[in-house]
Every structure is written in C-alpha cells, then in structure tokens.
C-alpha cells in the first residue's frame, strides 16, 4: 500500500538572479514497510524533499500525497529526526521526548507512560533527568529518535541523522535503528532517510532513490536485495556501492539536460 506519493514535484527559490530551480519533475512512491534512502550530491535538495513530504514547505508545482490526501501543511503521522538533533537545551531528556506528544493533547499519565517506553526503547534509561548538553552526540541523537518515535508516526523522516556523529558512534546507532526497524511492535510503517553517504544508504535501506545534481531529478530507483545483516566487505555490497556512485558522478550535471529516464525507474 502506498503511503506517500510524490508526483511531478518542482521546487524553486527566489534568488538574487531570478529563480533557482532546486528540483524538477520528481516522482516516486513510498509504500508500507519501505525503508527508502534519498541519496545524491550535496546541495541537490534531498533535505528540501524531506521537508516537502512533511509539509514544512510547499512544492512550486506538482503534489505530495500522504495516505491519498494532499499535503498542504504540517502533517501528523510523520516525525522527523534532525541532523543537528534540534533538542531544547532547557528541557531534560524526558521533557524533550515528551515534546511532540504534549502537542497531541494526551493526558499526563499517558504522556509519562509513552515517554518511559520510548526512553527505554532507545536505550536512554537512567538519563531521563539529564540535559542534552550533558550527553554525548550519540545519546543526543537517541533523544531525537525517541522524540520522533514517541508520537508513533507512520512515516519516520531522517535528515542526515548520523552526519554530526563520529564514525564509530554513527555505526552503532545505525545498527540499533535497524533493530528497532525490524521490531514489528514499534511505530513507523515506513522510513525515509536522507543521506549523502552511499554505504550508509545501502546498509540501511531497501530502496535507494538516487538524485542528480541541482536541479535534482531522479536518476534511478535502486532496490537493495542484499540479505541482512549486510556485510560491507562483501563483493555484492561493493558492486552496488560502485553502481550508485557512478550513477551520481556520471548522471546529470548542471549542464546536462534532464535525462529521458525521468521519474522512477526500477533497475534491479
């Protein structure tokens, strides 16, 4: 079942020398139980795409649908994990996790139970009363994750969630996210991950949507069929990485016209 449908989305910003086109004619679907990664060169509008899906921003033309309803403003049912964590430094871990549920207008007991659940799911037990500044980057991102999961979104949006972490921390957090994803009792029906790290995308996602340089269009929609747990050193992993990498480097520079393979192209 399709949860999110992106249809012919264009986005441009007013710049100093007229409009700057960020993305042109982007279309793809995200179905139930999809773990989708958006990859592409930096500045190609991956994060903007995520914000269009969430309803934080509106496309210049085209449309985004969430469960068959057009997204016109911020939608409930989706939650975002931010690159810079975006936690409130004046709130404790518990209060930060409660941030989103409070806005849903739940009763205090229910909020507390929910907070407790997601604090322990994300491995934050014992840190409930700590402030973000007292935590390491990895722990802070766990708070960001707990805050997003606590509203029980059907789509979890992750905007470069590991970019601000050191490689070792990022690696262990990736493993844990995969474990949470495999747990059927936990919320998101689908995940959309924005990343500029191809290996990370292949390790985590089942589908990789490769975007071109600005103005972005979809270069390919690659299905990742590697068995889990995925071994980064396997030759299949390496071949796939190589393929995505060459798609990005060869495909659609700013001077090239949008290729004919516009739109979603299943290529495996």
């Amino acid at each position: 079942m399709v949860i999110i449908r992106v249809e012919h989305v264009d986005k441009s910003f007013a710049g100093r020398h007229g409009n700057i086109s960020i993305m042109q004619d982007i279309s793809f679907d995200v179905a139930d139980s999809d773990f989708v990664a958006l990859v592409g060169p930096s500045g190609c509008g991956k994060s903007t795409m995520l914000r269009l899906i969430q309803g934080l921003d509106r496309p210049t033309s085209g449309k985004v649908e969430f469960r068959d309803k057009p997204v016109t403003s911020v939608v409930t049912g989706m939650a975002m994990v931010f690159q810079s964590f975006a936690l409130c430094p004046w709130l404790t871990v518990s209060q930060n996790v409660a941030f989103g549920i409070e806005a849903l207008g739940w009763a205090p007991d229910r909020i507390k139970a929910q907070v407790d659940r997601y604090v322990s799911v994300t491995g934050l037990d014992g840190f409930q009363e700590a402030y973000p500044r007292e935590l390491s980057g990895g722990m802070r991102q766990r708070v960001g994750l707990a805050r997003a999961l606590a509203v029980e979104p059907s789509v979890l949006l992750m905007d470069e969630p590991f970019s601000a972490l050191d490689p070792l921390t990022a690696e262990s957090l990736r493993e844990e996210i995969l474990q949470l994803w495999r747990d059927p009792s936990l919320p998101p029906d689908a995940v959309i991950l924005v990343s500029h790290n191809i290996e990370e995308a292949i390790q985590l996602a089942d589908r990789i949507i490769v975007l071109s340089r600005r103005p972005a269009h979809v270069l390919a929609d690659v299905h990742v069929d590697l068995p889990r747990p995925r071994d980064r050193k396997s030759s299949a992993f390496y071949d796939l990485t190589d393929r995505v990498y060459s798609l990005i480097t060869e495909g659609g520079g700013p001077t090239t016209a949008p290729p004919v393979t516009n739109g979603a192209t299943a290529s495996q």
Partner: peptide
C-alpha cells in the same frame, strides 16, 4: 533560534501556549 529547532517545533505541531512555554520563552531567558 536555530532553524532546525524551529522546524522541530513545526513538525511536532507545537502551537500557542505550548510553543511559547516549551520553546519561545525559554529561548529568550
């Protein structure tokens, strides 16, 4: 106020009094 925090408040649909109490007022203290 950092852009991402602003967006976080928006994605979690904080509004009115709650937005003021949780984000805006503390940010000014």
């Amino acid at each position: 106020l950092p852009e991402e925090l602003r967006e976080a408040a928006a994605t979690f649909r904080l509004r009115g009094v709650l937005l003021f109490r949780r984000v805006l007022f503390p940010a000014t203290i």
